[in-house]
Amino acid sequence: MSTRHILLGLLGTGSSHGYDLKRRHDERFPQARPLAYGQVYTTLQRLVRDDLAEVDGTDSDGGPERTLYRATEAGRRELARWVGEVTPPAPFVTNEIFTKVVVSILASADPAGHLRDQRAAHMARMRELTAVKTAPDADLSTVLSADYALSHLDADLRWMTTTATRLASLTAEVDTA
Rank of each mutant, 00 (worst) to 15 (best):
G62R: 00
D110S: 04
D139T: 04
A121H: 02
R119T: 15
P89Q: 05
A138N: 06
A74F: 00
T142A: 12
R125T: 08
A74W: 03
A90C: 09
A107L: 13
G63L: 05
L79G: 03
T67S: 06
S104A: 13
G113K: 01
D117G: 14
G113I: 05
R66G: 00
S145D: 14
V83M: 12
V93S: 12
D56M: 01
A124Y: 04
G75Y: 00
E65R: 15
E85Y: 10
T99V: 05
V132K: 11
V102I: 12
K133L: 13
Y69K: 04
T99S: 07
L144G: 09
T58P: 09
H122M: 12
R125S: 10
R116Y: 02
A107P: 01
L129T: 07
R77P: 01
I97L: 06
S141Q: 15
G63V: 04
P111D: 00
Q118T: 15
T130G: 07
Y69G: 01
V86I: 11
D147G: 07
P136K: 15
Q118M: 13
A124T: 13
G84C: 03
A74S: 14
A71Q: 08
D110C: 05
D56Q: 08
G63Q: 10
E78I: 00
P136Y: 13
E96V: 10
F98I: 01
R70Q: 10
M123L: 15
